[in-house]
C-alpha cells in the first residue's frame, strides 16, 4: 500500500515536472536567444558564443527602436491607471456598499450590466471620440479609457459589504464624516482587495495591445507591447536575437512584479472568480 502510494506520487511529480519544463521551455529559448549573435539563432538553447551585443545594438537604435522610452511609457501609463482606477473605484464602491442615497440602485445595476460590454464594441467610438479632441497619440488617450472600470467597483463592493457595521456606527457616533470614515476605516481595511485591484489593473494595462495599437501613431508615443511589435515586425522581422532581446526587456517589469507579488496575483485571479 505504502509503495503503491509512493509510486503514484512519483508519477504525479513526474507529470508536473514535465508540465513545468514545457512551461519554461519557451522562456528559456527567449533568454538564450537574446544572448546569441544574430547568425547563430536557432542553433542551440545554450549559446555557443554568448554575447550582450544584441543589447548594445538595441540601445544604439535610439531613433527607430527607442525601447527605454517605450518602457517608460508603459510603466507611466500602467502606474497612473492603477492609481486612478483604485481611487475612483474605491470611492464609488464605498458609497454603493455602505451609504444610502438616491439613485444608488440604478448606479449599481449600471455597473453590473456594463460588465458584459466587450471592449471591441468600444474600440472605434473611443478612437473617434479621442480623435475629435486631438488626443490620439497622447498619454490622455492611453490612460483615460481604462478608468471606466466597472469590474473594480464590483470587486471592492463585495469586499466592503463584508466589513462589520459596528466600525462604521462607532465612527459616526464619534462624529467622523463620510470621507474620514472611508479614509480611516474602509481604505485601510480593504488593503488586500485594493492592492489586488491595483496589481491586476497594472498588469492588464501594461500588457494591453489592442487599445495602445490604435491610440498611438508616432514611434516615441508607443507602449512596449505595440512598439516592439509594430517596429520590429516591419524592420527586423528576421533578426530573432534582436526581437528576443526586446521581448526580454519588455517582460522584465512583469517578471519582477510576479516574483514579489505572486501570492497576491494568484489571490487576485481567484477573486475574479468569486460571485
Amino acid at each position: 500500500m505504502l509503495t503503491g502510494r509512493r509510486s503514484t506520487n512519483m508519477i504525479k511529480i513526474f507529470v508536473l515536472i514535465a508540465a513545468c519544463v514545457i512551461t519554461l521551455f519557451p522562456v528559456a529559448w527567449m533568454i538564450s536567444t537574446a544572448f546569441t549573435p544574430n547568425g547563430e539563432a536557432f542553433s542551440s538553447i545554450i549559446p555557443a558564443h554568448a554575447t550582450i551585443g544584441n543589447f548594445i545594438t538595441l540601445f544604439g537604435l535610439r531613433d527607430q527602436f527607442p525601447i527605454i522610452r517605450w518602457l517608460c511609457n508603459s510603466l507611466l501609463v500602467a502606474t497612473c491607471t492603477a492609481v486612478l482606477v483604485t481611487l475612483i473605484d474605491s470611492l464609488a464602491a464605498f458609497a454603493l456598499a455602505r451609504l444610502r442615497f438616491w439613485g444608488r440602485k440604478v448606479i449599481f445595476n449600471m455597473v453590473i450590466v456594463s460588465l458584459v460590454v466587450p471592449f471591441i464594441a468600444l474600440l472605434i467610438p473611443l478612437y473617434v471620440e479621442f480623435a475629435k479632441y486631438n488626443l490620439i497619440d497622447s498619454y490622455w488617450a492611453l490612460i483615460l479609457p481604462y478608468t471606466s472600470n466597472a469590474f473594480g467597483v464590483f470587486l471592492l463592493y463585495q469586499f466592503f459589504i463584508g466589513i462589520p457595521n459596528e466600525l462604521q456606527e462607532a465612527a459616526v457616533m464619534d462624529g467622523a464624516n463620510k470621507l474620514i470614515i472611508w479614509k480611516n476605516i474602509f481604505l485601510p481595511l480593504s488593503t488586500p482587495a485594493t492592492a489586488t485591484l491595483a496589481l491586476l489593473t497594472f498588469m492588464n494595462v501594461y500588457n494591453d495591445f489592442f487599445w495602445p495599437l490604435v491610440a498611438t501613431t508616432s514611434t516615441p508615443m508607443r507602449t512596449l507591447t505595440v512598439g516592439v511589435q509594430v517596429v520590429s515586425v516591419s524592420q527586423y522581422s528576421t533578426n530573432y536575437p534582436l526581437l528576443m532581446t526586446a521581448t526580454l526587456i519588455s517582460v522584465i517589469p512583469m517578471v519582477i512584479a510576479f516574483l514579489f507579488t505572486q501570492r497576491q496575483l494568484m489571490q487576485g485571479v481567484v477573486m475574479t472568480g468569486i460571485k
Partner: peptide, 12 residues
Amino acid sequence: ILFFPTVLSATA
C-alpha cells in the same frame, strides 16, 4: 511556475 506565463503580454 505553471501560473507564470499568464503575467506575460500577448505580444511577448
